[in-house]
Design a binder for these strands. Structure first.
Lengths: 161, 161
DNA sequence: GTTAGTGCAAACGTTTTGCAAGGTA
DNA sequence: TACCTTGCAAAACGTTTGCACTAAC
């Protein structure tokens, strides 16, 4: 992973700086957690051994990594963007996003493939490999959601006020 | 639609103000366009016959309508939220979101149903009726996307600089 | 008259940008 | 040496909030 990134940087005359290495290291060690920019920044600061890193650099680096195809940016509603490594061996990253707890669950490609074909057939729309996000409720939150469903209108009135 | 909204407001002791009526009217006349808050605000200002409406009121009204189930809020990446009426007769609103031109295409429920079942079977994840968003490339943008696909890395280097 | 709703402006949190200083190749 | 990259601070952006005023019921 690290070597792959180094090669990519080199091939574009981009510099292999300690900041970029540190951010990549955090992305590697937090695989599956989908940290946001603030979380990455926090971890950089916690890491006393490394150089000082500014918030702007975090954003600029993540943007760069995204362009290089090293990192995927995930956005969910109005919340801060979250980032994850793109693993070369498993290119497709569909996500199930829990509307209650915000958890991201990765969906295997197989289930998606058939659906993508259907969408293409019906609408001429090509589903992007890395960008499919499905909103709903995860197993853990499901009971709560179902009991809340029938009282949705009452919930609305409760939150007004 | 208007009557339905009036009844909803009444039933919660919420007031039927000219601002709320104006915003609802815009949502009705812009069906299928998915305007964002700024676009709604702009149309309100353009409408000289109506009262003056502040930005905050637009946000507060849209939030209220969302809670009442009149309006659905759509968020796409880092772009401003977009809004659409929820039509009672067609409750489900899956969207195909074009990553290139930003167009939203509504996906009929049938194609989605089967996929939802698969997801539930495999992951115990319940896909929310109103919140499924599928990213990809619409028919119109597709040729451009395909020719760009193979040169993705070059594109990245081009936008660096 | 009561209370919900409004406009304004200021605050908010995330992200982007300008710029001079610093570090990599 | 060249110029990419950084940190800082300030700005930008969409959105939310506090408050005194207004208007619906």
């Amino acid at each position: 992973m690290l070597e792959r990134a180094c090669r990519l940087l080199q091939s574009y005359n981009l510099r292999n700086t300690p900041q970029r290495r540190a951010i990549l290291a955090i992305l590697i060690e937090s695989r599956g957690e989908h940290p946001d920019s603030e979380e990455i920044y926090r971890r950089l600061k916690a890491n006393k051994t490394g150089k000082k890193v500014g918030r702007a650099t975090v954003y600029r680096t993540l943007e760069l990594f995204e362009k290089l195809g090293i990192v995927a940016r995930l956005t969910l509603d109005g919340t801060p963007a979250r980032y994850e490594l793109i693993l070369p061996e498993r290119f497709v990253h569909h996500h199930l996003v829990c509307l209650k707890c915000g958890k991201l669950i990765e969906l295997d490609d197989l289930a998606a493939k058939e659906f993508k074909n259907t969408v293409f057939r019906r609408k001429g729309f090509t589903v992007a490999d890395k960008a499919m996000k499905i909103y709903g409720y995860c197993r853990d939150c499901q009971n709560a959601e179902q009991s809340g469903k029938s009282t949705a209108v009452i919930d609305a009135s409760a939150s007004i006020q």
